[in-house]
Design a protein around this nucleic acid. Structure first.
Length: 431
DNA sequence: TCTGGGGTCCTAGGACCC
DNA sequence: TCTGGGGTCCTAGGACCC
C-alpha cells in the first residue's frame, strides 16, 4: 500500500494548533512597547544560549540555540536588546493565552508553554477561517501576544499548516488545510526536517534515500518506514495522509518524572559546593512535586564536567536511589540525594552541571506505607515551610546544607522584572 | 573566559523463568 | 559427538519535542 485511498481521508475532523510567535520576546514587549520593531533575543538559563529571537533578530542572521558569546559581536553591532529568561513572567502570560483560548473551544490541549491544540468537534456551522482570525485578534488584544494558527484534519497536518502560517506572510497568521489540493501543495513545500516528529537524526537518514519533502515521505513504502523508523515513523506517515493517529490529550496525566538541574556559572571542584547545589535542587524539586500533590519513591542524582572543553579530563556519572517510603519531604529527599552524590563524586574534576530527577511519582493521597509513621509530621512541617516561603519570598526558610554564598549560582544578568507576579516589581506609570 | 532545562515515548537487549 | 526456546519484565539510552 503506497497511498491511502481518497475516501480514507479523515478530514472531517479539525485540529488547530495555536502557537505564540517568538513567545518569550513577545512577552518582554508587552511591558516595554519601545521594543516593538527592535531586535530582541532571550537567553537560556545561565545566559548560555539564544533560545528566542524576534523576527528582526532572525533577519540579522542570529541563529537559534547559538551560544550567546558567539553571537555577541553581531548583537552589539546591531544594538539587539538581550534578556535573561524570566520564567515567572512567561508562565503567567502563557496562562492568560490559554484561558483566552478556552473561551473559543471546550477542547484545549496545552501542549507547551507557548502552544495549544484545539479541537473543533461539532463546529460545522462555523466558518473556521473567520473564527480563527477572530481568535487571533482576541489574543492580541486581550493578552498582547501575536499568534499563528494552523488548522487541518490531523495534529501533524495542523503543525504543518502552522508552519506555513508563520513562514508565508500571505496567510496573515492563519493557514487552513482542509482539501486535498491545498494539502498536497503544502506537503510539497514542506522540507523533511520541518515535519513534526522528524528530528535531525531521521532527516539525515531520510535524505540519504533522497526523501527531501513531506510529499516524498508520503510516497515511501509503509513497511519500509515501519522497519526503519518504528511506530513513530509510521504514525507520521498516516497523519500526513490525513489519517488521525494522535488524539487530543485533554486530561493531562500525572507527571512520571520531575527534574531540577542547572549548569554552574563557574566550574566547581569541591564536594562541599556540589553538596550545596544538590541540596538546593533537591529542595526545588521537592517543592515542585508538593505543588502538584505528588510523592516520589526513587530518584537519580547526576554530575557532569564540561564536555565542550576538550582540554580538560571528563567525568560524568549518575546514581539511582530508592526511598523507604513515598515522600515529598525536602529534608528526606535532600538527605538521600547527598548520600548518592558522595558515592559518585570523584576528586580532581571541574564539574559544570549537576541535577536530580525524581521517579515513581504518585498522588500523595493514594500512597501511604503502613509503617510510614512520620508522614503527618513531615506533611505539616513542609506545609509550614511552603506557606512562609510563599508569603515572604523563596528561600526565606531553607536547609542549612543549601549554603549561603552559592558561588555556583547561575548567571541571570539581564532579567526583566516580574511585572505580573510580584507586587514589588509592578510596572510604574508616571502621569 | 563564556555552549539551557525539562519532559515523553520507544526500543533493544539483558535477566529471568519455565 | 550433544548444549532449547519462547515469553515477560525491566532498564538504559536514544530520539524527539519545546
Amino acid at each position: 500500500m503506497n497511498q491511502v485511498p481518497e475516501n480514507n481521508l479523515a478530514l472531517n475532523r479539525s485540529f488547530a494548533l495555536v502557537d505564540c510567535n517568538n513567545f518569550y520576546a513577545s512577552c518582554e514587549r508587552i511591558f516595554n512597547p519601545k521594543l516593538i520593531g527592535r531586535p530582541i533575543v532571550v537567553l537560556s538559563n545561565n545566559d548560555g544560549c539564544i533560545i528566542t529571537r524576534s523576527a528582526e533578530a532572525k533577519a540579522l542572521g542570529i541563529k537559534m540555540g547559538e551560544p550567546y558569546f558567539k553571537a555577541k559581536k553581531i548583537i552589539q553591532k546591531n544594538n539587539v536588546k538581550v534578556f535573561s529568561s524570566n520564567y515567572a513572567l512567561y508562565g503567567d502570560i502563557s496562562q492568560r493565552v490559554m484561558e483566552t483560548l478556552s473561551s473559543f473551544s471546550p477542547e484545549v490541549e496545552i501542549y507547551s508553554i507557548d502552544e495549544a491544540f484545539l479541537g473543533f468537534n461539532g463546529f460545522k456551522n462555523y466558518e473556521l477561517n473567520t473564527y480563527c482570525r477572530h481568535m487571533r485578534e482576541k489574543i492580541k488584544k486581550w493578552v498582547g501576544i501575536p499568534v499563528s494558527i494552523g488548522l487541518s484534519g490531523t495534529k501533524t497536518l495542523a503543525k504543518m499548516a502552522n508552519h506555513l502560517a508563520k513562514k508565508n506572510p500571505n496567510y496573515q497568521g492563519v493557514c487552513i488545510l482542509k482539501n486535498k489540493t491545498s494539502i498536497d501543495k503544502a506537503l510539497r513545500e514542506m522540507e523533511i526536517n520541518d515535519i513534526w516528529g522528524i528530528g535531525n537524526r531521521s532527516s539525515i537518514f531520510l535524505k540519504r534515500y533522497n526523501v527531501k519533502t513531506a510529499k516524498d515521505f508520503t510516497l515511501l513504502d509503509r513497511q519500509w518506514i515501519r522497519k526503519n523508523m518504528g511506530v513513530v515513523g509510521e504514525r507520521i506517515y498516516f497523519e500526513l495522509q490525513g489519517i488521525s493517529c494522535l488524539d487530543l490529550d485533554l486530561i493531562p496525566s500525572n507527571k512520571k518524572s520531575c527534574c531540577v538541574s542547572r549548569s554552574f556559572s563557574n566550574p566547581i571542584e569541591k564536594l562541599n559546593d556540589l553538596e550545596e547545589s544538590i541540596s538546593n535542587y533537591g529542595t526545588r524539586v521537592a517543592e515542585k512535586i508538593r505543588d502538584e500533590k505528588l510523592v516520589t519513591q526513587s530518584m537519580s542524582v547526576f554530575v557532569l564536567t564540561n564536555h565542550f572543553n576538550k582540554r580538560e579530563k571528563q567525568y560524568s556519572n549518575s546514581i539511582k536511589l530508592q526511598l523507604p517510603f513515598p515522600t515529598n519531604d525536602s529534608i528526606k529527599i535532600v538527605k538521600r540525594a547527598l548520600e548518592g552524590l558522595r558515592q559518585i563524586y570523584r576528586n580532581g574534576y571541574r564539574y559544570k552541571k549537576a541535577g536530580i530527577i525524581l521517579y515513581e511519582l504518585n498522588k500523595a493521597s493514594q500512597t501511604r506505607g503502613l509503617l510510614d509513621t512520620d508522614r503527618d509530621q513531615s506533611d505539616s512541617v513542609m506545609r509550614a515551610i511552603d506557606q512562609i516561603n510563599y508569603r515572604y519570598g523563596n528561600s526565606t526558610i531553607k536547609l542549612a546544607s543549601e549554603g549561603v554564598e552559592r558561588k555556583w549560582a547561575m548567571r541571570r544578568e539581564r532579567v526583566s522584572p516580574c511585572y505580573t507576579t510580584r507586587f514589588d516589581e509592578l510596572i510604574e506609570v508616571n502621569c
